[in-house]
Protein backbone atom coordinates (compact mmCIF):
# COMPACT_ATOMS: atom_id res chain seq x y z
CA UNK A 1 0.00 0.00 0.00
CA UNK A 2 2.86 2.30 0.78
CA UNK A 3 4.52 1.68 -2.59
CA UNK A 4 2.22 4.02 -4.46
CA UNK A 5 4.49 6.97 -4.05
CA UNK A 6 8.06 6.16 -4.88
CA UNK A 7 9.89 9.48 -4.92
CA UNK A 8 12.28 10.42 -2.14
CA UNK A 9 10.13 10.30 0.88
CA UNK A 10 10.39 12.42 3.97
CA UNK A 11 6.77 12.13 4.98
CA UNK A 12 7.70 9.51 7.54
CA UNK A 13 8.63 12.47 9.71
CA UNK A 14 4.92 13.11 10.15
CA UNK A 15 5.02 10.27 12.66
CA UNK A 16 7.62 11.93 14.80
CA UNK A 17 5.51 14.43 16.79
CA UNK A 18 2.97 11.77 17.76
CA UNK A 19 5.67 9.30 18.78
CA UNK A 20 7.49 11.94 20.84
CA UNK A 21 4.36 13.16 22.63
CA UNK A 22 3.09 9.68 23.42
CA UNK A 23 6.52 8.53 24.59
CA UNK A 24 6.96 11.62 26.76
CA UNK A 25 3.58 11.28 28.40
CA UNK A 26 3.18 7.53 28.75
CA UNK A 27 6.41 5.55 28.37
CA UNK A 28 8.95 7.77 30.07
CA UNK A 29 6.83 8.45 33.16
CA UNK A 30 6.24 4.72 33.42
CA UNK A 31 9.97 4.03 33.34
CA UNK A 32 10.37 6.67 36.02
CA UNK A 33 7.64 4.97 38.05
CA UNK A 34 9.73 1.81 37.99
CA UNK A 35 12.68 3.78 39.36
CA UNK A 36 10.47 5.43 42.00
CA UNK A 37 9.32 1.99 43.12
CA UNK A 38 12.87 1.31 44.29
CA UNK A 39 13.02 4.43 46.45
CA UNK A 40 11.96 5.21 49.96
CA UNK A 41 10.23 8.55 49.59
CA UNK A 42 7.37 10.18 51.43
CA UNK A 43 6.49 13.55 49.89
CA UNK A 44 4.98 14.90 53.09
CA UNK A 45 8.07 13.94 55.13
CA UNK A 46 10.97 15.79 53.47
CA UNK A 47 12.95 15.32 56.71
CA UNK A 48 13.26 11.60 55.99
CA UNK A 49 14.79 12.32 52.61
CA UNK A 50 14.89 10.05 49.60
CA UNK A 51 16.87 6.86 49.74
CA UNK A 52 17.33 3.76 47.62
CA UNK A 53 15.75 0.69 49.17
CA UNK A 54 15.90 -1.90 46.42
CA UNK A 55 12.88 -4.17 46.50
CA UNK A 56 11.82 -3.19 50.01
CA UNK A 57 8.65 -1.50 48.77
CA UNK A 58 7.64 -4.68 46.97
CA UNK A 59 8.39 -6.76 50.04
CA UNK A 60 6.29 -4.38 52.08
CA UNK A 61 3.24 -4.50 49.86
CA UNK A 62 3.42 -8.27 49.38
CA UNK A 63 3.41 -8.80 53.13
CA UNK A 64 0.46 -6.47 53.66
CA UNK A 65 -2.71 -8.59 54.03
CA UNK A 66 -4.83 -5.74 52.64
CA UNK A 67 -2.88 -5.92 49.40
CA UNK A 68 -4.01 -9.51 48.89
CA UNK A 69 -7.60 -8.57 49.67
CA UNK A 70 -7.36 -5.92 46.97
CA UNK A 71 -5.75 -8.32 44.48
CA UNK A 72 -8.57 -10.82 45.05
CA UNK A 73 -11.15 -8.03 44.67
CA UNK A 74 -9.55 -6.90 41.43
CA UNK A 75 -9.55 -10.41 39.99
CA UNK A 76 -13.09 -11.15 41.20
CA UNK A 77 -14.36 -7.88 39.69
CA UNK A 78 -12.58 -8.64 36.43
CA UNK A 79 -13.78 -12.22 36.01
CA UNK A 80 -17.35 -11.53 37.13
CA UNK A 81 -17.67 -8.46 34.90
CA UNK A 82 -16.12 -10.08 31.84
CA UNK A 83 -18.37 -13.12 32.17
CA UNK A 84 -21.56 -11.15 32.82
CA UNK A 85 -20.90 -8.48 30.20
CA UNK A 86 -20.14 -11.08 27.54
CA UNK A 87 -23.11 -13.35 28.26
CA UNK A 88 -25.60 -10.49 28.55
CA UNK A 89 -24.21 -8.78 25.45
CA UNK A 90 -24.49 -12.00 23.39
CA UNK A 91 -28.08 -12.51 24.56
CA UNK A 92 -28.94 -8.89 23.78
CA UNK A 93 -27.23 -9.26 20.43
CA UNK A 94 -29.33 -12.32 19.55
CA UNK A 95 -32.47 -10.54 20.70
CA UNK A 96 -31.80 -7.48 18.58
CA UNK A 97 -30.49 -9.40 15.57
CA UNK A 98 -33.96 -9.72 14.02
CA UNK A 99 -36.73 -7.53 12.74
CA UNK A 100 -38.15 -5.64 15.70
CA UNK A 101 -40.56 -2.82 16.25
CA UNK A 102 -38.39 0.16 17.25
CA UNK A 103 -35.37 -2.16 17.02
CA UNK A 104 -32.94 0.44 15.70
CA UNK A 105 -34.14 3.01 18.20
CA UNK A 106 -33.74 0.67 21.19
CA UNK A 107 -30.33 -0.45 19.98
CA UNK A 108 -29.08 3.13 19.88
CA UNK A 109 -30.63 3.98 23.24
CA UNK A 110 -29.29 0.98 25.14
CA UNK A 111 -25.70 2.10 24.36
CA UNK A 112 -26.12 5.27 26.45
CA UNK A 113 -24.59 4.00 29.73
CA UNK A 114 -21.24 3.57 27.99
CA UNK A 115 -21.10 7.28 27.16
CA UNK A 116 -22.14 8.49 30.61
CA UNK A 117 -19.49 9.83 32.98
CA UNK A 118 -18.66 7.24 35.64
CA UNK A 119 -18.87 9.84 38.41
CA UNK A 120 -22.46 10.53 37.42
CA UNK A 121 -23.19 6.81 37.18
CA UNK A 122 -21.74 6.13 40.60
CA UNK A 123 -23.48 8.99 42.37
CA UNK A 124 -26.86 8.40 40.75
CA UNK A 125 -26.84 4.72 41.70
CA UNK A 126 -25.49 5.46 45.15
CA UNK A 127 -28.08 8.08 46.01
CA UNK A 128 -31.24 7.98 43.93
CA UNK A 129 -31.44 4.27 43.34
CA UNK A 130 -29.66 2.29 46.03
CA UNK A 131 -29.44 4.50 49.12
CA UNK A 132 -30.93 2.45 51.97
CA UNK A 133 -32.41 5.35 53.96
CA UNK A 134 -34.05 7.46 51.25
CA UNK A 135 -34.89 7.23 47.58
CA UNK A 136 -35.98 4.30 45.44
CA UNK A 137 -34.34 1.45 47.35
CA UNK A 138 -35.93 2.58 50.61
CA UNK A 139 -39.25 3.29 48.95
CA UNK A 140 -39.54 -0.09 47.25
CA UNK A 141 -38.44 -2.12 50.24
CA UNK A 142 -40.78 -0.33 52.62
CA UNK A 143 -43.57 -0.79 50.08
CA UNK A 144 -43.02 -4.55 50.22
CA UNK A 145 -42.33 -4.45 53.93
CA UNK A 146 -38.76 -5.65 54.20
CA UNK A 147 -35.73 -3.76 55.37
CA UNK A 148 -33.74 -2.16 52.54
CA UNK A 149 -30.55 -3.86 51.38
CA UNK A 150 -27.44 -1.92 52.29
CA UNK A 151 -25.79 -2.15 48.89
CA UNK A 152 -22.74 -0.14 49.87
CA UNK A 153 -22.10 -1.92 53.15
CA UNK A 154 -21.91 -5.68 53.21
CA UNK A 155 -22.54 -6.04 49.46
CA UNK A 156 -20.22 -3.30 48.27
CA UNK A 157 -18.12 -5.54 46.01
CA UNK A 158 -21.23 -7.00 44.37
CA UNK A 159 -22.60 -3.49 43.91
CA UNK A 160 -19.41 -2.35 42.21
CA UNK A 161 -19.66 -5.35 39.89
CA UNK A 162 -23.30 -4.52 39.09
CA UNK A 163 -22.39 -0.92 38.26
CA UNK A 164 -19.49 -1.91 36.00
CA UNK A 165 -21.64 -4.50 34.24
CA UNK A 166 -24.35 -1.90 33.73
CA UNK A 167 -21.90 0.55 32.23
CA UNK A 168 -19.77 -1.81 30.15
CA UNK A 169 -22.29 -4.31 28.75
CA UNK A 170 -23.41 -1.75 26.14
CA UNK A 171 -19.83 -1.55 24.89
CA UNK A 172 -19.63 -5.35 24.59
CA UNK A 173 -23.03 -5.32 22.91
CA UNK A 174 -21.91 -2.74 20.36
CA UNK A 175 -19.07 -4.96 19.15
CA UNK A 176 -20.78 -8.34 19.48
CA UNK A 177 -23.91 -7.11 17.71
CA UNK A 178 -21.76 -5.99 14.77
CA UNK A 179 -20.42 -9.54 14.65
CA UNK A 180 -23.85 -11.15 14.75
CA UNK A 181 -25.00 -8.94 11.91
CA UNK A 182 -22.13 -10.14 9.78
CA UNK A 183 -23.33 -13.78 10.04
CA UNK A 184 -25.01 -14.49 6.67
CA UNK A 185 -28.76 -15.11 6.88
CA UNK A 186 -28.50 -18.25 4.74
CA UNK A 187 -26.31 -19.91 7.34
CA UNK A 188 -28.98 -19.43 9.99
CA UNK A 189 -31.74 -20.51 7.63
CA UNK A 190 -30.01 -23.73 6.69
CA UNK A 191 -29.38 -24.45 10.35
CA UNK A 192 -33.08 -24.02 10.96
CA UNK A 193 -33.93 -26.34 8.08
CA UNK A 194 -31.59 -28.94 9.57
CA UNK A 195 -33.71 -28.71 12.70
CA UNK A 196 -31.25 -26.96 14.99
CA UNK A 197 -32.82 -25.31 18.02
CA UNK A 198 -32.26 -21.66 18.79
CA UNK A 199 -29.68 -22.46 21.45
CA UNK A 200 -27.85 -24.91 19.19
CA UNK A 201 -27.71 -22.32 16.42
CA UNK A 202 -26.33 -19.78 18.84
CA UNK A 203 -23.67 -21.94 20.46
CA UNK A 204 -22.60 -24.05 17.50
CA UNK A 205 -22.93 -21.63 14.60
CA UNK A 206 -23.17 -17.99 15.63
CA UNK A 207 -20.72 -17.90 18.54
CA UNK A 208 -17.91 -19.65 16.60
CA UNK A 209 -18.36 -17.21 13.70
CA UNK A 210 -18.28 -14.13 15.94
CA UNK A 211 -15.46 -15.44 18.11
CA UNK A 212 -13.14 -12.68 16.93
CA UNK A 213 -15.66 -10.02 17.90
CA UNK A 214 -16.16 -11.58 21.33
CA UNK A 215 -12.38 -11.68 21.80
CA UNK A 216 -12.06 -8.02 20.86
CA UNK A 217 -14.83 -6.99 23.23
CA UNK A 218 -13.34 -9.05 26.06
CA UNK A 219 -9.80 -7.81 25.53
CA UNK A 220 -10.85 -4.16 25.50
CA UNK A 221 -13.18 -4.85 28.41
CA UNK A 222 -10.35 -6.50 30.36
CA UNK A 223 -8.06 -3.51 29.92
CA UNK A 224 -10.74 -1.00 30.86
CA UNK A 225 -12.28 -2.91 33.76
CA UNK A 226 -8.83 -3.23 35.33
CA UNK A 227 -8.61 0.59 35.14
CA UNK A 228 -11.93 1.36 36.87
CA UNK A 229 -11.39 4.13 39.37
CA UNK A 230 -14.08 6.84 39.39
CA UNK A 231 -16.91 4.43 40.15
CA UNK A 232 -15.13 3.12 43.24
CA UNK A 233 -14.07 6.61 44.30
CA UNK A 234 -17.56 8.12 44.33
CA UNK A 235 -19.48 5.12 45.66
CA UNK A 236 -17.69 2.98 48.24
CA UNK A 237 -14.26 4.64 48.56
CA UNK A 238 -13.02 1.06 48.55
CA UNK A 239 -14.88 0.31 51.74
CA UNK A 240 -15.96 -0.93 54.11
CA UNK A 241 -12.30 -1.33 54.96
CA UNK A 242 -10.73 -2.68 51.78
CA UNK A 243 -13.65 -4.86 50.82
CA UNK A 244 -14.44 -3.13 47.54
CA UNK A 245 -11.08 -1.55 46.72
CA UNK A 246 -9.37 -2.48 43.48
CA UNK A 247 -5.74 -1.95 42.51
CA UNK A 248 -6.07 1.52 40.95
CA UNK A 249 -7.98 2.76 43.98
CA UNK A 250 -5.48 1.29 46.45
CA UNK A 251 -2.62 2.88 44.54
CA UNK A 252 -4.41 6.23 44.51
CA UNK A 253 -4.91 6.02 48.28
CA UNK A 254 -1.29 5.14 48.83
CA UNK A 255 -0.14 8.19 46.87
CA UNK A 256 -2.64 10.82 47.89
CA UNK A 257 -3.47 9.75 51.45
CA UNK A 258 -0.22 8.24 52.68
CA UNK A 259 2.01 10.22 50.29
CA UNK A 260 4.23 7.20 50.14
CA UNK A 261 5.59 7.56 46.62
CA UNK A 262 7.84 4.51 46.61
CA UNK A 263 5.20 2.12 47.80
CA UNK A 264 2.58 3.54 45.46
CA UNK A 265 4.98 3.26 42.54
CA UNK A 266 5.55 -0.38 43.41
CA UNK A 267 1.78 -0.91 43.43
CA UNK A 268 1.53 0.77 40.03
CA UNK A 269 4.24 -1.46 38.61
CA UNK A 270 2.46 -4.52 39.98
CA UNK A 271 -0.78 -3.29 38.39
CA UNK A 272 0.88 -2.92 35.00
CA UNK A 273 2.50 -6.34 35.35
CA UNK A 274 -0.86 -7.90 36.13
CA UNK A 275 -2.52 -6.09 33.22
CA UNK A 276 0.15 -7.28 30.80
CA UNK A 277 0.13 -10.79 32.20
CA UNK A 278 -3.65 -11.15 31.97
CA UNK A 279 -3.88 -9.55 28.52
CA UNK A 280 -1.16 -11.81 27.22
CA UNK A 281 -2.66 -14.95 28.80
CA UNK A 282 -6.00 -13.96 27.35
CA UNK A 283 -4.52 -13.41 23.90
CA UNK A 284 -2.68 -16.70 23.82
CA UNK A 285 -5.70 -18.59 25.17
CA UNK A 286 -8.05 -17.18 22.56
CA UNK A 287 -5.82 -17.20 19.50
CA UNK A 288 -4.95 -20.87 19.88
CA UNK A 289 -7.31 -22.99 17.79
Amino acid sequence: MGQVIQKKDHSGKLLLPAVVVVALITQIPFLMTIILSLLKWNIKRPDQGISFTGFNNYREIFTDPNFWVVIINTVVILIACLALCTVIAVLLGVLFNRDLFLGYFCRSIIIIPYFVMDCVVGIVWKTLLLNPSLGLNYYISSFFGFSPIDFFGAYSLVTIIILIVWQWTPFFFLIIFAGLQSVPGEVLESAQLEGASGLQTLLQIQVPIIKAHINTAMTLGLINILKVFGLVYVTTQGGPGYRSANLPYLTYRTVFFNWSIGEAAALAVVTVAITLFLTQKFFSATTRH
Partner: peptide, 11 residues
Protein backbone atom coordinates in the same frame (compact mmCIF):
# COMPACT_ATOMS: atom_id res chain seq x y z
CA UNK B 1 -3.19 -0.57 27.99
CA UNK B 2 -1.20 1.48 30.46
CA UNK B 3 -3.30 2.45 33.50
CA UNK B 4 -3.22 6.09 34.55
CA UNK B 5 -1.75 5.24 37.95
CA UNK B 6 1.36 3.95 36.18
CA UNK B 7 2.30 7.46 35.06
CA UNK B 8 0.71 9.76 37.63
CA UNK B 9 3.52 9.95 40.19
CA UNK B 10 6.40 11.24 38.04
CA UNK B 11 3.95 13.52 36.22
Amino acid sequence: FLPAIAVIMPV
